[in-house]
Design a protein around this nucleic acid. Structure first.
Lengths: 234, 234
DNA sequence: TAGTGGTCTAGACCACGAA
DNA sequence: TCGTGGTCTAGACCACTAT
């Protein structure tokens, strides 16, 4: 077995056995390299492997940490993020990064089935669990059903605002899900290296009369989530 | 911008512009390093990044290749793999790796809701698109509804065998989906390095009377698939 | 300011794949 | 057999973090 595989196993065992617990910071790379009697490059190979398996993660220039468990997430159940996280015994947190009305690009226009040169509301938010950023979302709202929605407090649940202020509830839902790279604003907000692995969920939400309400680009840390889908719920 | 990011961009541009086409093999790492006037380690950093973004992929010790487009896959639509792939203009291919009846482990027993010390049929298959392995599946069948099923030709559609020989059709469906590492038999069958990134889909299939039929562990190459889910179909 | 992770150099040897 | 990718060494400098 290659050396970095052995290092990987050793670290993994210590984590799984509970000697290293979730959120715990690993020693410096140079210390670890010394500990395993190897070079930093080889050591980093093991760390990167563990990272891609979701066992550990890094924060840019801060170091390596043991990953907390994944969040169970049923994208079809429109429960609020905060509620869902709390039900799993964790501390949720949402931060509004930006909101504005702008011209829709081609892809958004197509998803929302808007005519050319339409304008849409865009809401960018960062969601954290136990202080750790896990989800960067861009919501694109069809402006027609939601005049002045950007005036509301957008740190909570959009679902709730839809319902309470506009009397609109969700109906049908369409999802695209695929592993992708985190780049640009998503990577920056999630505090991961440009190009690291993530999971992208593009959702299109309809109301009960089958009109398109909005679409979301959800960029998840690859190790932060486990999706659950049950067709019996529909 | 870091050097390997520049290299990455350059390669990516050439691929997106069509100068390098899907399935095409890249030059040797030493050649590329020379071309970009850098070392192999730095060059490999760029290649690994492109790999994790799904732009290129490698076959163990054979080299680097440009990735073909993802397969659109609706896991709720029980259409046959072969049919689905052909509809998207590609060549499907299934190889039976192994089938046997064995004692169920704890996780399988729980998923299939079987009593302790039950036996199950296990079918291991590898599925390819245009010669490229993309999906390694382990099917675990509840043996009760399917006596002697292992006698059938298992290179085609299980769905079809269920229906034609046992009069059983699908009903409800439960899925767990998450990014994971490919290891052991999955990595070997897909011809990727141990520990590389993949997408794991665990599905539990019910029949129309809501009895559990089987569960599948689907290990996908992370760059080979895009999941589609539409609640309006249920 | 000291220490850390991020990036990079210039080599090396081995095992496997292709010929 | 030759070239390839897989692995590894022993350093280096810089930008950023923590203090």
């Amino acid at each position: 077995m290659s050396q970095f595989q052995t290092i990987k196993r050793t670290l993994q065992d210590q984590i799984e056995s509970g000697l290293l617990t979730a959120g715990c910071k690993l020693p410096a790379e140079r210390k670890l390299a010394e500990l395993f009697d190897t070079t930093r490059i080889t050591l980093r190979e093991a760390l990167v492997l563990l990272e891609s398996e979701g066992v550990i993660y890094r924060e840019e220039r801060r170091g390596w940490f043991v990953s907390p468990p994944r969040l169970d997430y049923n994208p079809a159940e429109r429960s609020h993020f905060h509620e869902m996280v709390r039900q799993q015994g964790r501390q949720p947190d949402t931060r509004l990064l930006d909101c504005q009305t702008l011209a829709a690009n081609t892809e958004i226009s197509r998803l929302l089935q808007l005519p050319a040169l339409s304008r849409v509301h865009r809401v960018q938010r960062l969601r954290r669990i136990d202080q750790r950023p896990v989800l960067y979302v861009e919501h694109y709202l069809n402006p027609a059903p939601f005049p002045d929605i950007l005036q509301h407090n957008l740190n909570g649940s959009l679902t709730e605002i839809y319902q309470q202020h506009y009397g609109v509830g969700y109906g049908r839902l369409r999802l695209q899900i695929y592993p992708t790279a985190l780049t640009g604003e998503a990577a920056a907000a999630l505090n991961v290296a440009q190009g690291s692995h993530g999971l992208l969920i593009i959702r299109v939400n309809y109301d009960q009369e089958n009109r398109i309400l909005d679409c979301d680009y959800e960029y998840w840390r690859h190790d932060a989530v486990c999706l659950l889908v049950d067709t019996a719920e529909f």
